[in-house]
Amino acid sequence: MNSPSARTNRREEVADWIAAEIKRLGPGAKLPSMRAMMLKFSTSQRVIEAALSPFVAEGRLISRRGQGIVIASPAAPDADEAVE
């Protein structure tokens, strides 16, 4: 079994790769499947989910079961934040 620090390092490695893919691919593009990422990084689903979670929470990725993981379009600025 991997130590907690090994899992954290692997999660960070996967998260860094995801961030780079978001920049490289752009809005509307799909990331590889969960299984493909598990194989690419030789890690568990739990580690991949932990790496994806912050991006989904921030709205940078949209994850739907059976439909994959899609890079979200940048949000339009709120009316309150608009410069007048």
Rank of each mutant, 00 (worst) to 15 (best):
1 M>F: 00
2 N>P: 08
2 N>G: 00
3 S>N: 11
3 S>V: 01
4 P>Q: 01
4 P>R: 00
4 P>K: 05
4 P>V: 07
5 S>E: 08
6 A>H: 07
8 T>K: 14
8 T>S: 10
9 N>S: 04
9 N>V: 02
11 R>T: 15
12 E>F: 02
12 E>Q: 11
12 E>I: 02
12 E>A: 06
13 E>F: 03
13 E>V: 00
13 E>M: 13
13 E>N: 08
14 V>E: 01
15 A>N: 04
15 A>H: 12
16 D>A: 14
17 W>D: 12
18 I>R: 03
19 A>C: 09
19 A>L: 13
19 A>Y: 03
19 A>I: 03
19 A>Q: 14
20 A>V: 06
20 A>C: 06
21 E>C: 05
22 I>D: 10
24 R>P: 00
24 R>M: 12
26 G>I: 07
26 G>C: 12
26 G>L: 05
26 G>E: 07
28 G>P: 03
28 G>K: 12
28 G>S: 02
28 G>Q: 01
28 G>E: 06
28 G>I: 00
29 A>F: 11
29 A>C: 13
29 A>N: 07
30 K>H: 14
30 K>T: 09
30 K>I: 00
31 L>D: 12
32 P>L: 04
32 P>Q: 09
33 S>C: 00
35 R>M: 12
35 R>S: 14
35 R>V: 13
35 R>N: 09
35 R>G: 13
36 A>R: 12
37 M>E: 04
39 L>N: 15
39 L>W: 03
40 K>I: 00
40 K>C: 03
41 F>P: 05
42 S>M: 12
43 T>G: 11
43 T>I: 08
45 Q>G: 07
46 R>G: 08
46 R>D: 11
47 V>S: 11
48 I>D: 03
48 I>P: 09
49 E>N: 15
49 E>D: 11
51 A>Y: 05
51 A>V: 02
53 S>W: 01
53 S>D: 15
54 P>C: 08
54 P>D: 05
55 F>T: 04
55 F>D: 07
56 V>Q: 05
57 A>N: 13
58 E>M: 03
58 E>F: 08
58 E>I: 01
59 G>D: 06
60 R>V: 00
61 L>M: 05
62 I>W: 05
63 S>M: 10
63 S>E: 11
63 S>A: 13
63 S>V: 10
66 G>F: 09
66 G>H: 07
66 G>Y: 08
66 G>V: 09
66 G>K: 07
67 Q>C: 04
68 G>E: 05
68 G>Y: 08
69 I>H: 04
69 I>N: 07
69 I>F: 00
69 I>S: 01
70 V>F: 02
71 I>M: 10
71 I>N: 04
74 P>M: 09
74 P>T: 09
75 A>Y: 02
76 A>K: 15
76 A>Y: 04
77 P>S: 09
77 P>V: 12
77 P>Y: 01
78 D>H: 09
79 A>W: 12
79 A>P: 03
79 A>C: 02
80 D>M: 09
81 E>D: 13
81 E>S: 10
81 E>R: 09
82 A>K: 15
82 A>G: 02
83 V>G: 02
84 E>W: 13
84 E>I: 13
84 E>G: 15
84 E>H: 11
